[in-house]
């Protein structure tokens, strides 16, 4: 329990101070920036995950968000600050179509349908050369404009630390939103649906409406992350942003971290990705990602509620208990 109390605070202090320590080490900052992005993906994935549905197709939302924002800012010259939310909206639109076909399904069959669904936006993006420039991808995406607060000037795209703090800030905002959502009656409904759908319906929860809502919200924030990713990396292509990587990673982090908790998915991303990059990548340049396969197998066999869920045994998301899990 004490670990569970202290770890988030220590983690936050570490993340806030990291650029100070790592000032001369670009690689460390890049890795943690990407880890933070993956953490936001895991948080967003778990908005759906908490309702009991496992998606293997979130790359569809990630890619849709990335492409929407990239094309609008490239072709129309609109500021990324305006196009990023639109990326989220289009991702939610795609989720609505997905929901139409997939939300009648439960459990394994929902997961299989989402796995197949990614192919649709991917193949369309790949082939609609006139709009998306096809499999060549998009280069030279505009970076994120710097933010001005009075005389203070916050440069995002110009420096690694700027990008890092931007993603950290976005991650914290998303964490706050997810906490509010899970603690609200929406979160209550989603958990009830996950545990006992029939009983949930019997107490008056409109099951399908809430499942759709959680899918849309999850897709919206995944799309926002995808859009930010594009403007940070400045280059996207269908195989990359619709790739299995962005479907698999949030699922793996959420399940290993604990999909019945708020923080677990994000913590898993912030621990596993740096471990992969700093330890396994140098040892095994080809094949280091076996780590993710290994941890998900171990988690599903020995710790189905995830590491963070195990540490907080019996204290999953609750409207009553005070602390953030």
């Amino acid at each position: 329990m004490q670990v569970a109390r202290a770890a988030p605070v220590l983690g936050l202090v570490f993340l806030l101070l990291l650029p100070v320590f790592a000032r001369y080490n670009d690689y460390v900052l890049q890795v943690f920036t990407h880890a933070l992005l993956l953490a936001t993906l895991a948080l967003a994935w778990n908005i759906l995950g908490v309702s009991g549905s496992i998606s293997l197709g979130h790359a569809a939302f990630f890619g849709a968000g990335a492409y929407t924002s990239a094309l609008l800012s490239l072709d129309l010259g609109v500021s990324p600050w305006a196009t990023i939310p639109l990326g989220g909206v289009l991702a939610a639109g795609i989720a609505a179509i997905m929901g139409l076909f997939c939300l009648r399904l439960r459990g394994a069959y929902f997961a299989l349908a989402t796995l197949a669904f990614v192919e649709i936006p991917k193949v369309i993006t790949d082939n609609w050369d006139g709009l998306t420039r096809g499999s060549l991808g998009l280069v030279g995406l505009p970076g994120l404009p710097s933010l001005r607060l009075g005389s203070y000037h916050f440069d995002i795209s110009g420096s690694l630390a700027g990008s890092y703090y931007f993603v950290l800030g976005y991650g914290l905002v998303l964490l706050l939103l997810v906490t509010l959502m899970f603690r609200s009656n929406l979160g209550l409904a989603l958990q009830a649906i996950r545990e006992e759908e029939i009983a949930a319906e019997a107490v008056g929860i409109q099951v399908q409406r809430y499942r759709l809502l959680s899918l849309l919200l999850s897709a919206f924030f995944t799309g926002i992350t995808g859009a930010c990713y594009g403007h940070l990396i400045r280059y996207i292509e269908p195989g990359l942003v619709y790739g299995l990587h962005f479907s698999a990673m949030p699922m793996i982090f959420a399940i290993c971290g604990g999909r019945f908790t708020i923080l677990g998915p994000a913590l898993a991303a912030l621990v596993l990705y740096p471990v992969d990059q700093f330890i396994f990548h140098p040892l095994l340049p080809a094949g280091h990602e076996f780590l993710y396969g290994a941890v998900i197998i171990l988690a599903i066999l020995f710790m189905p509620s995830g590491v963070w869920g195990q540490l907080r045994k019996g204290h999953f998301v609750s409207i009553k208990t005070g602390s953030i899990e």
Binding site: N185, Q191, A192, V203, F316, I319
Partner: peptide, 22 residues
């Protein structure tokens, strides 16, 4: 229900709150 269907991973209080809220 004939075989009770609690929301197993939620606290006992939350179980009842769900009924109250919805």
């Amino acid at each position: 229900f004939q075989s009770s269907r609690p929301f197993a991973k939620m606290s006992t209080l939350d179980n009842v709150v769900v009924g109250r809220v919805f």
